[in-house]
Each structure stands twice: as C-alpha cells, then as structure tokens.
Design a protein around this nucleic acid. Structure first.
Lengths: 356, 356
DNA sequence: GAAATTCTGCTAGACGTCTGTCATTTTTCA
DNA sequence: TGAAAAATGACAGACGTCTAGCAGAATTTC
C-alpha cells in the first residue's frame, strides 16, 4: 500500500532537480539529452504516472471543447446535439466546458470559417463531423500545430491529420443489414431495394458496398439504387415508383435519412402481397414509432451516446497529453420491436449529497 | 468565463466561516440549524459543486473497490473478470484500486463470508453478482451502514438494500430472442426449443418468460423446456433427444450457458431437413466461432464491458457521495455473423505522452 | 450564577503539480 | 581565452479541499 511515486521521487531517482524533471515531462525549456534520458529512465523505473487531479488543480484547468455539428432537418444530428448537451452537463463537475456549434450541412467553406474562428479562441479540443475537403484539412492541420486536439465524429476524414476518428464502420453496418435480410429470407430468393441520400456521401456509399458484399452469392439480388437526397418527399415518390415497377421486391434497405417518406409508403401497403422487410438506420422518434407499429422490421443505430462519450473522452485524454486507451470499435446496435429501450427521461441531479 | 465558486465563496455568501461550511458539507461536528440552512442556501444560490480533483488530492484519496465474481467453468464470468482487470488498469491513473475476488458459484455462505471479510478491510465499494439469500442481505445491510457502497451486477437482489443494480433486463432479452425468431419465420408456423441452465436461476427464468410472452399469439409454439444445468454434456444429450423426438422444431433458444454441447449437436446436423434457427446468449470464443462457422444464427450479448464500466462508475460516484447520474438501460447487443467485432487486442499504454 | 455543553471562528499544514524568476554552472564557439 | 548560449538548480506562490487543534462565544443545564 505504498504511495504512488511523485515527480519529486522521479527527480531524486534520476539525480536531477525537480525543475529539470518538470522540463522533461512538460516539454518546456531545453534539457540536455543525458538528463532527459535519466529522467525518462527514472519515470519508467518507478512507474510514475501523472496525478491528473493535482495537475488540473494546479492549473485551475478548465477544458474547453467545441463540437461542430451540421445543421438541417436531419433528426439524427439533432439527437447528437441533445446527447452532447446532456454529456456537457454531467461533465461540469470535472471542469469541462463543452460548446456545441451548428453549421450548415455539406458546406466546407462554412466549416472552414468555423474552424478558423475557433483557432482564435482558447480551445483545447474540437470534434467535427468529417467533410472531405482540402481547405478543411488545412484548417485542421493549423489547429493541431497550435496544440488543439481534433477528433472526427460519425464521418471520418481519412486524408486529414485529425488525431482520432470516433464512429462506426459503415461497411460493417451494410453487411449487418444484409445478414438480417438473409436471415429473414432463410435461403429463399428475393430482391432488395437500396436507398441512400446520395452516393457521394461516404457513409451511405460504404453501407451499400457492405450490403452488396454480403448478398453476393446468396439468392437475394440488389435492385437499382434510389437516391433520395435524405428528403422524405423525394424518397416517398421514388420508392412508390420502384415498388410499382418491380413487384418482386422482398426487402428495402434505407442507408440514409429522410425515412418518413418511406414509412408513409409502407403505411399505405395493401395486405397482399405481404409488405417487404424493411431495414433503416438510426433510432429516432419516427423510426421508433414505425418499429412499434410494425411498419418496419429493423433499425440499425450507431449509438450516438457511445460516440459522444468516446469523443469527449478522447478529447480529454489528448488535452492531458495522455495516450488514448485502445478503443474497441463501436458496434452499431440492432433494434427490433422487442428490444426498444424505454424513451429517456431527463432528471436533474442535485449538487451535494445528503449530510449524514 | 468566471471561476467556479469555491467553499470560501460559499462561506462568504452565507456569512459564516469556512470551518462551518466544511462541517456542513462534510457532515462532521455539530452545526446550528440556522447556520446549516444559511450554508445550504448559499450552496444552491451559487451553484457550488465540489471540486473532486481538489478533494481527492487533499485526501490523497485512493478508492478501494472489490468485485466479487462467481468462479466455475462459466466462460462468461471469466470474461467479466478479464474486463474488470483491464478496467482496473485504466483506472490506475485516477487512483482507483480494483480488486477482483472469485468465489464459488451459487454459494450464499461463501459469499457471506467474503462480505464479512471485506467489512474488516478498508474498502469504499463492493460489486457482487446477486444471489437471493437472507444472510447475504444482512451482510450487505451491515456494509452499507459502515458507509460502503454496494452494487449488484448482472443479477439483482430486489429485496436487498444494495445501492444500485447494473445489468440487463432479462425479460427483454427473452422477448428479443422471440422477435428475431419470428423475423426468421416470417409468418410461418414453427416450434421453439427452449434451453436453460435451471429454472431456479432468476435470469434464465425471466428470459424464458419473455420468450413466451412475445411468441404468444404468433404461429410459433414453444416446445417442452430443457434444463441443461449449464453443462455441455447434459445439454448435448437432452437436445439430441428432443430433436429426435420432435422433428417439427424450427428454432432453438438457449437462455443459459453450456452451449458447447448445443454447438456439437448442430455441427453434426445432416442437410435435410435444414437445421433449426439457433439463438444463444453471450459472445464468447465458442459462440463467436459457432457464429462464424454458420452453426448458429444469433448471439444476444449483455455487453459486460458496459456493465463493468457502469459498475465502477457507480461505485465511484457513491464513494464521492455524489448522486448517480440517470443510467440509461443497458440494451443487450445482437450479433450475427456480419457484425462481429474484431477480437480484442491488448495494447499496453505508455505512462507519459511524447515530448514536443 | 456557575458549570457544562454546544457552536463557531481561526489558523496552518498537507496533497502533487504548474509556473515563473533568478542565480549559478556547464558547454559551445568565435 | 573570453564571451555568449545552454543547461540546471533552488525556491515560492498558487490551485481547492481536507483535517486537526484550540480558543472564544453562545447556549443549555443544574
């Protein structure tokens, strides 16, 4: 039960002064290579780990994070924002201030402006939904040079210098949809109607790729793709048309948003032939209701709660210059009518525990 | 951007000394009712929240938690232990020491002895897998009186005075199995063979209840229950017999452990008729392989990672005498061949970040 | 009214780290 | 060889809370 080693212990062990140790571990001032080695050796000998509590206290540290979330009619992004706000409240105890900024969706110029704006404020970390664009890349690189942690959320930017990506593997998501569709077909032949917002959206395209991969070689074929622009009116029209044109559709997989239109079409289905199996993404009010009413069969959800928690955790680690713990993948959840979680209630915690 | 209020601010506002404030918030010494009210009022006026970092620093606080996990051949409990150990490592940074004790499964006397033993050591919180027993209840109550936080994990003890339960709703888990079985039947008739370890185990019984509820009124019936005692040899024999006796079985739902026996039977299946659909619980090496090899269709997993994380988090909150944040239910994960997470790799974090 | 009890205020030293200043020593290079 | 530059040591004041001890004031008890 001995006390954990402190920087003073490290200094003694390394045979240098506290100041030198401090210069090494906090990377400031210049230190001779020899001294640096001595210190690092002592650190590893003693198994020193920084006492984060003390460090934060000393700096009166307040983490300042900013999350940049696309605006628009997308219910999913709204949900992400809600979760962020809730998480921000809970983190207030730990002196973490989380700001959420909404920007126009699919607008690299606006995103870049937002990032440049943040570069001028004292911020420790930024989370953003990736948008592939050279100007955004440059802004991220600039922020990182200034020591700001940058994490991509939900959608990655593989080419950029972001510190980490937090989100699901969309190829796997598409394969999952395929697996469930195959399960329901049980070896019978069929044809899946795939719907996306736009194939130019990386995540949507990945999901459809995954679907195709896992259906290949099975008896279930893939019908021509519908691009619904994530708008329910467009989706409704195109789905209606596709179903009329092809009575052999046995399943529908919607990889994008704008599902309200799809639900309307299904709601108007006549009994014969039986309606196709329907798989959509993201658990929102509309999809939850559709599931409860039996209009659809499966919702694949990317667990934004987990994504948000991981994101803030990653930002915190990086702000502390601590290594990121190995992150297990976020596995999308599969919801059916029977395992829907109860709708969440907001309860407000009190600041202090009861006195005895 | 003003600084968060401190206890000194509270004292000023309340018009009393720091010492009095301290006596109120830490519930020591005696304080006049009037002063106490003044302090509490100031706390709520200012929105004071204790700076946990400073508090821990001042006390050189080391949280000591102990998790009591049943021993035995159960692979799931082994997995829980692994996760606990990993979590313990990660929490070392925050001065949290987690000890894991294995005890004989289904042995209330041993559990009680373990709890009594712990009562004599300086421990801040205990997590245990619930076992319904009056002696255990009493031991828990005694611990709580001594200020030790007690959380039940995986299996609850509804009658006891535990502070919280972290685990899944097994009724929902059974309903989920039913929903997936119905999905694969797509309106066709069928018959499910249910397997448990023992109906006396609360979680197993709940799952079967859930299954029955959700199958009621559908075309899928429930065959006579098999009790396999969670032993793979017993399971193999009884399943083989049941399948021979009833060729109309179209699905198997194993709510307990000992699934290796079930996998063996399925592996020996002849092509015609097609094998029944198989749903089992807990993602372990054996079930993962069975899923990959196509021996089974679905694994329902109770996400022990989440359960462990929540448990330790809950213990920490209670040790700090902070209110528990509202816990969203843990929703069991549904795995099929296509969405299996990659097997986890163990990587060891380095103690310090790189110097610039 | 005196004594006992309860309540309150004051003070000071931890806890481990960060940050800054200043003086001193060692190294480097012209 | 001397001057500039680099490296090091020493030290002190924060950060917010906990803990302990002691003295003085207010209240209750007999």
């Amino acid at each position: 039960m001995k006390r954990a080693p402190t920087l003073a212990d490290v200094a003694t062990r390394a045979g240098v002064s506290y100041a030198t140790v401090d210069r090494v571990v906090n990377a400031r001032g210049s230190v001779a290579t020899r001294s640096k080695d001595l210190v690092l050796q002592a650190v590893s000998d003693l198994g020193y780990v920084r006492n984060v509590a003390a460090a934060n206290l000393a700096q009166a540290r307040t983490y300042r994070f900013c999350c940049i979330i696309p605006d628009g009619t997308n219910g999913f992004m709204q949900r992400v924002c809600d979760i962020l706000h809730r998480a921000a409240e809970a983190l207030a105890t730990d002196r973490v201030a989380v700001e959420v900024r909404r920007i126009a969706a699919f607008d690299p110029v606006g995103l870049r402006a937002c990032l440049d704006d943040l570069a001028a404020t004292p911020v420790d970390g930024i989370a953003l939904v990736g948008t592939t664009d050279a100007r955004v890349d440059a802004a991220i690189a600039a922020l990182r040079r200034r020591g700001v942690a940058v994490v991509t959320l939900i959608s990655d930017m593989p080419g950029s210098t972001r510190d980490a990506y937090v989100g699901i593997d969309n190829l796997t998501a598409g394969r999952t949809a395929a697996g469930l569709i195959l399960l329901a077909h049980r070896g019978k032949a069929g044809r899946v109607l795939p719907i996306v917002g736009a194939l130019s959206a990386r995540d949507h395209a990945d999901r459809i790729d995954g679907l195709r991969q896992s259906l290949a070689g099975s008896g279930v074929a893939v019908a021509p793709l519908i691009e619904g622009l994530d708008r329910h009116d467009v989706v409704a029209g195109k789905v209606q048309a596709a179903l009329s044109a092809d009575p052999g559709i046995t399943a529908i997989y919607s990889a994008g948003a704008g599902n309200a239109g799809l639900f309307r079409v299904i709601a108007g289905w006549t009994d014969t032939p039986p309606r196709p199996m329907v798989v959509v993404h993201e658990l929102l009010d509309a999809s939850r209701q559709a599931l409860e009413q039996g209009l659809i069969d499966i919702v694949i959800d990317q667990r934004p709660e987990d994504e948000v928690a991981r994101t803030l955790d990653a930002l915190r680690h990086m702000a502390d210059r601590r290594p990121l713990p190995p992150l297990p993948q976020i596995v999308p959840a599969i919801y059916i009518k029977e395992n829907l979680p109860v709708a969440r209630s907001d309860s407000r915690p009190v600041p202090l525990a009861e006195s005895a």
